[in-house]
């Protein structure tokens, strides 16, 4: 029991992951009943309800499958339960792998290599849960306040609300991206390939008016960049020893 996978795929973690799934299904069922109950008085018929459900579900098929590709690529690093909860649901591939990288750095380790021990994985999983959970905590705390129509929060300076999140996220991801470069030449190749593939996908999406390319861009970029990393790692002398 010394490898990450045996801890990351432990039955208890599976049970927690399936529990989160069950809670979301339960929430959906309660919401549907509430809407079915109140709908007739709100000009929202059973037929409207059925059509809304179906339209939402069908519209989600493409984006869901795009998330699936990204999630599968992360299975060997984080194990299935962590991927299902952290990447598939609450978090996103970008924020959660960023968290894992930040944590690994504090422990003098790197993702996926010989220093990626069960202990480092545990600390990373802990921090992902704690940080990812804060989005839910903030939803739980702020929703009642926003519902009361707190003027102060609702009329926050629009320039501030536009610039701060954009700059904060771009700063975070740019920093983590640049930090990959000194690790090895294969890391450089992988970062550049990933960025280039995404740029091409976004350009094609606009040129061909193909919105699906925007959704699938991340999955395509990951697969092609990993393919290139495979060639560079195994068939050239660029990789770390």
């Amino acid at each position: 029991m010394r490898d990450v996978a045996s801890y990351a795929n432990s039955p208890f973690l599976w049970a927690c992951a399936l529990g989160v799934f069950a809670v979301i299904v339960l929430q959906s069922l309660i919401y549907m009943r509430a809407a079915a109950d109140a709908g007739p008085d709100l000009d929202f018929s059973r037929e409207d309800l059925r059509r809304s459900l179906r339209a939402g579900g069908v519209a989600a098929i493409g984006p869901s499958l795009a998330v699936v590709i990204v999630a599968i690529a992360l299975l060997t690093l984080l194990g299935t339960p962590a991927v299902l909860v952290r990447i598939g649901l609450v978090g996103s591939a970008a924020t959660e792998t960023s968290s894992a990288t930040l944590v690994a750095t504090t422990m003098g380790a790197q993702l996926g290599g010989p220093t990626w021990t069960p202990e480092v994985f545990t600390a990373a999983f802990f921090a992902m849960g704690a940080s990812g959970g804060m989005w839910m905590v903030s939803a739980l705390v702020l929703t009642p306040i926003l519902k009361r129509g707190d003027a102060h929060l609702r009329h926050a300076n629009p320039a501030l609300m536009a610039i701060v999140p954009s700059a904060a996220l771009l700063g975070a991801f740019a920093s983590l991206g640049v930090a990959e470069l000194p690790k090895s030449n294969v890391h450089v190749v992988t970062v550049v390939a990933s960025a280039a593939v995404m740029a091409v996908c976004l350009w094609l999406a606009r040129r061909l008016d193909a919105a699906w390319l925007r959704e699938w861009g991340l999955g395509i970029a990951i697969l092609l960049a990993l393919g290139l990393a495979y060639v560079a790692h195994h068939h050239t002398g660029l990789g770390p020893a």
């Binding site: 993702l111 290599g113 970062v191 990933s194 970029a221 990393a229 790692h233």
Partner: peptide, 8 residues
């Protein structure tokens, strides 16, 4: 495992 993060 090694290159998933740079790939993302």
């Amino acid at each position: 495992r090694l290159y998933i993060f740079p790939a993302i």
